[in-house]
């Protein structure tokens, strides 16, 4: 029901994100989605990649502090209003979003939304009950594999 995202600590100085991406490139890791959150003096890069465990091994070898975070990924139609409908479902049930970001794949007319909430199961239940497709890790890898 959940998908795996890698969260990585990055220092806040010029070039850190470039260095990080270079590590992925060197190891032939395909990044599918990314979002960077920044505090005053540091940032957290959150990435969805094609091979989670290999990537974590590579990053740890390179000295990065990172962790795997379980997030929800939902499929939505690529049309105006689709996002607001999904978010409204969660809002009505008083579910707080810690963060969210979206990505597109080669799949036509579809967009994907990554959601981080405190209680994945509860949020997934609400979404599923309302007919929203929540993607599991296997399905995500299949989408990327196409």
């Amino acid at each position: 029901m959940t998908t795996k995202q890698i969260s990585v600590f990055l220092e806040n100085r010029p070039g850190t994100l470039a260095e990080f991406c270079k590590v992925l490139q060197k190891n032939n890791i395909d990044m599918r989605a990314m979002c960077v959150a920044d505090a005053m003096d540091f940032g957290i890069a959150r990435v969805i990649v094609d091979n989670v465990y290999d990537t974590v091994t590579v990053l740890k070898d390179e000295g990065y502090v990172c962790q795997i975070t379980k997030v929800l990924t939902v499929e939505m139609e690529d049309r105006p209003g689709a996002l607001s409908e999904i978010l409204a479902l969660l809002g009505e049930q008083n579910i707080n979003l810690e963060y969210t970001y979206a990505f597109l794949t080669r799949e036509k007319d579809k967009a994907y939304l990554v959601i981080k909430v405190a209680d994945n199961a509860a949020a997934a239940d609400i979404l599923k009950k309302n007919g929203v497709k929540v993607i599991c890790q296997d399905e995500l890898e299949k989408i990327f594999g196409d």
């Binding site: 969260s7 600590f9 920044d38 505090a39 957290i44 962790q67 975070t69």
Partner: peptide
């Protein structure tokens, strides 16, 4: 220096 113990996915 950042350590795994100090790190979290949440800012």
């Amino acid at each position: 220096e950042m350590t795994p113990e100090m790190f979290s996915d949440e800012l």
